[in-house]
Amino acid sequence: MRSRAAAATLLEAGFKEVYSMEGGINAWNGRVAEGAPQSGMAYFAPAATPEELAALAWRLEGGSRKFYSALADTVTDPEAKDLYRQLAKAEEHHQTALLKLYEEFSGKASAPGFPGALLPPGDEDGDTMEGGMRVSEALEWAKGKKTTDILELSLSLETNAYDLYIKMERRMQDEHSAQVFHVLSAEEKQHLERLSALLEKRM
């Protein structure tokens, strides 16, 4: 078992508290994120300041909100409709948190139409959502799909987003930039728990 050997190496090196997970990833029945260690990070590459990072993240959350709002408008199942409304609301909440951070960092109120001028050109239409998918493509895919299938897609997109935010926080050199991703990953964690609970109820 590779993780036992790795754990032994760490203990030998003086790490005090090390555990090897029994059965490895095959025994894990929770969600997994996909992609290489740097996957998804390119989206944030154009940002040079914490303000710009907050703006880029805000736009991404906006894409996810658009996705869930459009689903809420199109589905007929009342329970599903309600669920997508809640999810859109959660994304709006993420955006509010980012806006507050922006105002805190920049020391000024955000202009109407935030983030507009802060960002370099590209994706002004806000068609990218968390997990890196295009909103238009995800909506096309969702047509005629069952609620549980759509929830599965949401969960995997959000799991990838959670993975990305944790890694981005670790990577950030300055405190404010790290804070942007700290807020996002904390929100995303709660969000994932709610989504999983709803999916379990529906299955």
Binding site: R4, T9, Y19, W28
Partner: peptide, 12 residues
């Protein structure tokens, strides 16, 4: 030899 050492484990 690290492959044969006893290490603490946690269940998933």
């Amino acid at each position: 030899l690290n492959y044969f050492k006893q290490v603490p484990t946690w269940s998933p």
